[in-house]
């Protein structure tokens, strides 16, 4: 039996921003349990001393020159936007607050310049 509960899946769906019905949550919980049970053996295989590999090839220090390349016009940028207004992407009301680098308050007036 898997340790993943329906509440866990509900939380994961919230993190992933995927709305799910009760039936979907049920199904996902059981499927996820089966899959996780089948993959969790990976924990037994590698000891402390094995370094993780995040990139298949060991490249380092790939940098770009600080020179301006191609830029979209506002029309190009917004060409496939589901909704827009005043050359900006339009979204419905935001309930949550952003994070970290997001100054939700302060330099907002810049937008009007």
């Amino acid at each position: 039996m898997s340790e993943i509960s329906r509440a866990d899946v509900e939380h994961l769906a919230t993190l992933a921003h995927i709305a799910m019905t009760d039936a979907e949550l049920e199904k996902m919980t059981s499927e996820l349990g089966v899959i996780v049970d089948s993959v969790k053996r990976v924990q037994e295989a590698a000891g402390e001393d094995v370094p993780p590999t995040s990139h298949p090839l060991p490249l380092t220090n790939v940098f770009r020159e600080d020179t301006v390349g191609h830029v979209f016009t506002a029309e190009e940028a917004l060409a496939s936007a589901p909704d827009s207004q005043d050359s900006r992407f339009k979204v419905p009301a935001i309930l949550s607050e952003g994070d970290d680098a997001v100054p939700s308050g302060a330099p907002q007036e810049e937008g009007e310049r």
């Binding site: 390349g69 979209f72 506002a74 940028a77 917004l78 050359s87 937008g111």
Partner: peptide, 8 residues
């Protein structure tokens, strides 16, 4: 101007 300093 908004969205004029962006690319893909």
């Amino acid at each position: 101007e908004p969205n004029t300093n962006v690319n893909e």
